[in-house]
Design a protein around this nucleic acid. Structure first.
Lengths: 255, 255
DNA sequence: CTTGCGGTTGACGCTGCGTCAACACCTACG
DNA sequence: CGTAGGTGTTGACGCAGCGTCAACCGCAAG
């Protein structure tokens, strides 16, 4: 019993193109090739094809299928590994879906949160998950409620303050000042005071964010490009100066 | 203020290669190109890039991003369409995960589990009397007719879904998650949705099984060894976690 | 001047085939 | 026996989004 390529394709629910492709990859060879070059497949080929298609439907890459069929790989192991990959993919997809959903919700909410609506260059509703991960759910909730409660003028003022601070840092960097310089530390002081106005940060007994939080935020300014861009727009390396200044400030005043 | 390509790449967290790619696509042009051919980007470019990256992170194809930025497409509309695609992808992924999970389970069980006749690990024709006693004769009749009307593929899919849910509960148990944990409750949600597809259960006005039914079923999972075995095969104590998760879910969403 | 880092423009690679294109075979019909 | 039409064959491009050479040029420091 043998069939031409089209029959096999119809019987197995794929296309002739795919069958030839598998031939090219060495996954499935015809049992016989006629003098005309026509491919013919037999029973064994059909069985092999069914195994191929089964694994393919499970999403295994063709290369892996080849290894499994060749006995170089244990099918079970391959499937386990594959399952892990699939679950990771689902995680990514879910995160993405949540991001898009919240983004849409905000837009529809008409918040029009353009770039100026965000403070610290950091639209914290946009990065909800990160904030929660980094500083806890409570932090996000508090911070969010606090921000929403503000009037537009207050919001504007708050951002202006941040922009001014960033600009001053930039100027300091431009002037070649060091992080330990008193003038830079004065900016850090303002920076700290500004941050103290934000709810939802880990607080120390005397009030105001903790040293860890303040210094950690500085690290983030350098590590996270969204922040980096926001400070470095006042000059290359400003973010690093800011980070250093924050660390120095934390050491001198918060510990 | 302007930056060479590497600075922009670092500040924005992408690569120079990607930036050149965007240039080729017309997504983001340098504000200036030096006599040496070097690209330089200004503030506007940075802002535009940030918008590009934001949309890219949401998974929008670059072509669509281009249209949105060019104002040929409404961002909101594009995101809605995109969200639909993402959800379809997740569906496909979920199906695939279920398939792989059950395939693995079968291989490991080695039993070739041809048990296409049972769902929920519960062959209801075999337990006719109990079903009638517990939820009424009509329930049994409806459920039976509903099940018999399904095609083999549908039956298979339905069972696969249940097996996947059970496996996920097992994983949650393994991870030491509590019944109240959001991740466990997400599984319970799927569990509930899955059950909602079954005819013959007591329905509440909004559709879907009642709180009593759902929670009662959970009790049954623990009391009845036939059910218990079905969940505990994913790890000792899984059935109890399932019961608790179902009770929590019922309290939170169904009452 | 050399070294070394950083920039530039091609061009291929990856995944799994779909989709022409150009050409050969086979079968049935007139 | 010629021909039309269906079925095969072997290339080769295309897709999405860049990663990754390769070959060559600029620029600042020693």
């Amino acid at each position: 019993m043998e069939w031409p390529i089209s029959d096999l394709a119809r019987a197995s629910g794929t296309t002739t193109r795919a069958l030839r492709h598998y031939g090219d990859l060495g996954l499935l060879q015809p049992s016989r090739v006629g003098p005309s070059g026509y491919r013919f497949y037999d029973q064994d080929g059909l069985l092999r094809l069914q195994r191929i298609l089964l694994l393919r439907d499970l999403g295994l890459p063709l290369a892996t299928i080849g290894e499994v069929l060749a006995g170089e790989q244990d099918a079970e192991r391959a499937l386990e590994v594959h399952l892990d990959l699939l679950k990771q993919e689902r995680e990514r997809l879910d995160r993405r879906i949540r991001s898009v959903t919240t983004t849409l919700a905000k837009r529809r909410g008409g918040e029009q949160m353009t770039a100026n609506e965000s403070f610290d260059g950091f639209d914290h509703t946009e990065y909800k998950e990160e904030v929660e991960q980094r500083w806890g759910k409570a932090a996000y909730r508090d911070s969010d409620a606090w921000w929403r409660a503000k009037s537009p003028e207050e919001k504007r003022a708050f951002q202006d303050a941040q922009l001014a601070i960033a600009a001053d840092y930039g100027a300091a960097k431009q002037a070649g000042l060091a992080a330990e310089d008193d003038r830079v530390q004065a900016i850090a002081q303002r920076h700290y005071d500004w941050l103290s106005g934000i709810a939802g940060t880990p607080q120390r007994p005397q009030g105001g964010p903790t040293a860890e939080y303040f210094a950690g935020l500085g690290e983030m300014y350098v590590e996270d490009p969204r922040f980096t861009a926001n400070y470095d727009m006042h000059g290359q390396g400003t973010a690093k100066l800011v980070r250093d200044a924050m660390r120095v400030y934390a050491e001198r005043h918060l510990s």
